[in-house]
Write a protein that binds this DNA or RNA. Structure first.
Lengths: 153, 153
DNA sequence: CCCAAACGGTTGCATCCGCAACTAATTGTG
DNA sequence: CACAATTAGTTGCGGATGCAACCGTTTGGG
């Protein structure tokens, strides 16, 4: 249970929380990407768009960008790819003709239905290394930090 | 203290730990980058190289790559930039003439000495939003996950 | 009612990044 | 001792990304 006394003189990257968070996020992401990249041919932005659109009944690119905190151009390009692969479709049906409603196609829903359980199972496997208490402590810490940085929705 | 009951049917990105970790890491990194980017003109790879080299008495690019978990080409380019700016210097003095020892120049040490306290202060400010108990819980969780994923040094 | 400002979304461009291929030096094996 | 395999580090290249500029639409103030 090392809880680090910060060094006065220099910086120890390995004990520096911003660095550790980043390294952990990358590690976890790599662990997950096996699923959506190798088995479904999605990259990270595409996966996030699928995840967002799949859990709604249609939404705008704007909403996806806010919800995933990705840059709108990144969303735009991911959506374009997914549309080419006929996993999602866009309808300009809304009252506001600037926006286009993004929805999963039948094929998209099929992929989503296969993908999500696998991904949630991976999350479960990962978190299983923590005791109930540890998990709770981690989630509380995450939530407090998110709140402090104004990140959570 | 929401600790989420995972939805059975779909995926809620906002409650998905890998996504939350990534978002938090980006948020924290942005919070820090004000310092090293705007005030010192460093980008992320350069900042990591400075942090690593500064806390040692000279090291190889290889060591920087392992320690920061950056790709060796990313390290190579960051080191090249920093050398142009005369913040670091390379000496091929070692026994093994393939490697080059990377060290801070006088200017580099000056920057490091100004930079590190600011960055550590930012970390402190960030973590101050947590109670002692919460901080401890977070660090324990981080450590367990790092260990599970084989990330820590 | 009109025009400027704001907004959703896309695209050109410059930059960043990782992979693969490369150079140069070292190590190990016969 | 020689040569194949490995390692430190760099570079060419294609793909991803963010910024700024843009298009078309909507909104709001005078």
């Amino acid at each position: 249970m090392t809880v680090r006394a910060p060094t006065e003189l220099g910086l120890e990257l390995a004990a520096f929380v911003p660095y550790r968070l980043n390294r952990l996020a990358v590690g976890v992401s790599d662990h997950l990407s096996d699923i959506y990249r190798e088995r479904f041919g999605l990259d990270i932005p595409e996966w996030r768009v699928m995840a967002t659109v799949g859990s709604q009944h249609g939404c705008t690119a704007q909403h996806i960008a806010e919800s995933t905190r990705m840059h709108k151009t990144r969303v735009s390009r991911a959506v374009a790819h997914l549309e080419e692969r006929e996993l999602i479709e866009r309808a300009s049906s809304t009252a506001d003709r600037r926006e286009r409603e993004v929805r999963l196609t039948k094929g998209g829903r099929k992929m989503y239905a296969e993908l999500v359980p696998l991904v949630l199972e991976r999350e479960r496997e990962l978190l299983a290394c923590l005791t109930k208490e540890q998990l709770r402590g981690l989630l509380v810490g995450l939530e407090t930090l998110e709140s402090f940085l104004g990140l959570q929705d």
